[in-house]
Design a binder for these strands. Structure first.
Length: 709
RNA sequence: GGCGAGGUAGCUCAGUUGGUUAGAGCACAGGAUUCAUAACCCUGAGGUCACGAGUUCAAAUCUCGUUCUCGCUACCA
């Protein structure tokens, strides 16, 4: 494999609507940072970009809710998130933001370029519109009852209570969050990116070229999308928060956030180039650049399908790999900020790092544990007990303990100096140690190149373990007792301590990408400059000069106490309880307010009503629609004809139980195909507070086809 | 419902193209030791590789079916 000329590494842009938790950290930022630190130690030309994603509908919505502005929200969270990353040692070369004019300009030009080349399509469709506010409603501007869990505050794109993703059409009693009124449907025109045009390219590029070097889950997810038939995807939205659509007809529209956000990687690179007096273009245009996106699995489709298509159309390079991580759960449940079941980076920093008994070493403790359970091939689980065991049992007992006993012995037995080597007394153990160091370097290097961070870190710790074994075999503290009787005793001690010291220097180099604060502290102990940490120095046994005096011992980490763990667990549970109580309160309030708030749809005139042809019908056949959970296919007798009507009531009724029932039919509703079957009409149903459905029918059976008015 | 990923020791995970007795760390048990943050070191126990069938001289690995977990996605005119 030949070495790329330069690297561009991206980590998913965090959404600037709140704090980010350690699941995010473990998913994208930490592995990206490890990779970048490794590349930089290799002296490669690398730029590490990230920044806040500040557009989309969630942010203005939140602003309305909190009685503030969208700008205020992003101005609040952007610096906090940026600082959180710094405190945890995530060393971006640039942490930009998509609200920056440079980004607006970049995204704008990107869109114009694609538009001019004819790579986009326009389409007109019906969307919810708020008449009183005179504006189209993006998904998140519509609220209603969740069809899944009955939560009253579900958004048009997702229910925050049960987590189910929704479309505005699914909501029961949709309401505009702007005016509280029921929205109407209105025509609007948007630009679309026709993904379907690029199917052949994607098949070739992902399913063939990257079938073996990308992670299985990533290729699998892409395959699923490609095989499922790619659709044109809307690039613009009716909204006023975001990058304005820069072409005629785009008034009142902005770029859809999924289109604008990844371009943020490019604008961030531009800003970095400006700050550092460099040229950004080769990083996005030169084939010799290796582009790697670090993301969580929820982002696969954007980074593997959509953004690459955009990049290809725009003439940029494509990602070389997209090492997406699975999810990290917490104490037996999914992490979720809204449910209070998460550990925010900000909280961890305040509680562990910025405390009297904390400090930077506690940042490395978190980095260490997160990497050791990194969800590289399947979902993993963070537990506080696991955190404690990992830190105390491996980081402290194996790694730090080796360094500490080396330092203590060196001060006791070799006067605090690097002792000389006595070649005539070197034995197999000494040679084996040197070989192991070289082997470990090779292993760690190979693993890092393959994005296997968990295993790579394990190998480094294992090297420290081997150091402990080496010392145990040599027993310099025993040899020290024979100084009077054995004339070679001091030489034996010298050789052992020399080996342990050189091993420590190697450990510092190898652990540096994972635990940068620790590596730095080790340099301090060894009285060497950071340059010693260059990767090329690993595998060498002359890093510390003979006769050089080193600093007194100093502990690299402190242990994590049982009480601290218990306190965290208690707090986590209390947090979740509190959030749950708030949620339930909201639900109750919403239900109570319902009569006034969502009572009636806007008034209509008689003529509107008269357009609807209501008829009595009798169900004569009913069966479940295959491959659909909710649909029943009904044959309804309307007297003058028999019709096929589909109804989404399969969860409520058995087909055999409803045959013979009389129902009310909207007989002149435009036909609609669902699951390949055409439905000609609609059956009216009443729904009670629990969501139970009832047929609406005449009090006594009457002739099918009778009109209702 | 469709698709994708996963189910291996109490826990967290490895297992390359099917090939002796299925590995590692933690936790556990026993031993040894004291330079070290009661740390280290040695030894040990612990598995019907989710379940069922099939292909094969040989299956954790390949095929089919079942089941559970996670993710994406479809259906409520």
């Amino acid at each position: 494999m030949n070495t790329p000329k330069r690297y561009l590494i991206t980590a998913a842009l965090p959404y600037a609507n709140g704090l980010k938790h350690i699941g995010h950290l473990a998913g994208a930022y930490l592995p990206a940072d490890i990779y970048v630190r490794y590349l930089k130690a290799q002296k490669r030309d690398v730029v590490f970009v990230c920044g806040s994603d500040e557009h989309g509908t969630a942010i203005p919505i939140q602003a309305t809710k909190e009685g503030t502005t969208a700008q205020a929200i992003i101005d609040k969270y952007h610096p906090i998130i940026e600082q959180n990353f710094k405190d945890l040692g995530i060393a971006f070369d640039i942490y930009h933001r998509t609200s920056d004019p440079l980004h607006h300009q970049t995204a704008s030009e990107f869109f114009k370029d694609l538009e001019a080349k004819g790579d986009l399509e326009t389409k007109t469709s019906q969307q919810y519109f708020d008449e009183s506010a005179q504006t189209f409603l993006a998904d998140r501007y519509i609220k209603g009852t969740c069809p899944n869990c009955g939560h009253n505050e579900a958004y048009g794109d997702q229910c925050e209570k049960c987590g189910k993703s929704l479309s505005p059409e699914e909501l029961i009693n949709p309401l505009s969050t702007l005016s509280g009124n029921a929205p109407i449907k209105k025509e609007t025109t948007h630009w679309y990116l026709p993904l379907n045009r690029h199917e052949d390219f994607l098949r070739e590029w992902i399913l063939k070229d990257h079938a073996s070097d990308w992670r299985a889950a990533v290729v699998g997810q892409c395959k699923s999308w490609i095989e499922g038939g790619l659709q044109a995807r809307a690039v613009t939205r009716d909204l006023d928060w975001g990058v304005k659509v820069p072409v005629a007809g785009g008034e009142g529209k902005v770029l859809y956030v999924w289109f604008d956000a990844p371009i943020g990687y490019i604008s961030a690179t531009k800003q970095w180039a400006i700050n550092n007096d460099k040229d950004w273009k080769p990083y996005w245009n030169d084939k010799d650049t290796k582009l790697v996106h670090f993301i969580g699995k929820d982002n696969i489709v954007f980074h593997c399908i959509i953004f690459p298509i955009m990049l290809k159309l725009h003439g940029n390079i494509l990602p070389d790999n997209v090492p997406a991580n699975e999810f990290m759960n917490l104490e037996g449940d999914k992490m979720s900020t809204s449910r209070g079941w998460s550990i925010e980076m900000d909280d961890y920093i305040k509680k562990w790092i910025k405390k009297d008994n904390g400090g930077e070493s506690l940042a490395d403790c978190l980095r260490f544990y997160l990497t050791s359970i990194s969800p590289e091939s399947k979902d993993s689980e963070f537990t506080w007990k696991g955190f404690q065991e990992s830190v105390n049992g491996e980081l402290v007992s194996i790694f730090a303990n080796f360094v500490n006993r080396t330092w203590v012995l060196m001060h006791k037995l070799t006067k605090g100096k690097v002792p000389p080597i006595h070649p005539d007394l070197l034995d197999e153990e000494d040679n084996a140690l040197l070989n192991t160091v070289k082997e470990t370097k090779e292993k760690v290097t190979a693993l890092l190149e393959q994005y296997k961070f968990r295993e790579a870190q394990f190998e480094v710790v294992n090297l420290a373990r081997i150091g402990n074994q080496y010392m145990q075999k040599k027993e310099p503290w025993i040899v020290a007792k024979q100084l009077d009787t054995d004339p070679t005793a001091q030489a034996k001690i010298d050789n052992c301590m020399h080996g342990c010291l050189q091993l420590t220097a190697n450990l510092a180099i190898l652990i540096n990408p994972f635990l940068p604060f620790t590596a730095k502290k080790m340099c301090h102990l060894m009285k060497v400059v950071d340059r010693m940490l260059d990767w090329e120095n690993a595998g060498q046994f002359n890093l510390l000069k003979v006769g050089y005096s080193l600093r007194p011992p100093e502990l690299l980490f402190r242990k994590i106490e049982d009480e601290e763990i218990a306190a965290e667990l208690a707090e986590l549970k209390a947090n979740a309880e509190a959030k749950k109580a708030t949620m339930e309160n909201n639900t109750i309030t919403a239900t109570q307010e319902a009569p006034e708030e969502k009572g009636l749809k806007p008034e209509i005139v008689f003529d509107d009503f008269a357009k609807i042809d209501l008829r009595v019908g009798t169900i004569i056949e009913a069966k479940k629609v295959e491959k659909a959970d909710k649909l029943l296919e009904l044959l309804v007798d309307l007297g003058f004809e028999k019709r096929t009507i589909l109804s989404g009531i399969a969860m409520h009724f058995n087909p055999e139980d409803i045959i013979g029932k009389q129902v009310t039919i909207v007989a002149n509703l435009a036909p609609r195909k669902m699951r390949g079957i055409e439905s000609k009409g609609m059956i009216l149903m009443a729904e009670d507070a629990e969501g139970k459905l009832y047929f609406v029918n005449p009090s006594e059976a009457i002739a099918p086809g009778s009109g209702i008015s």
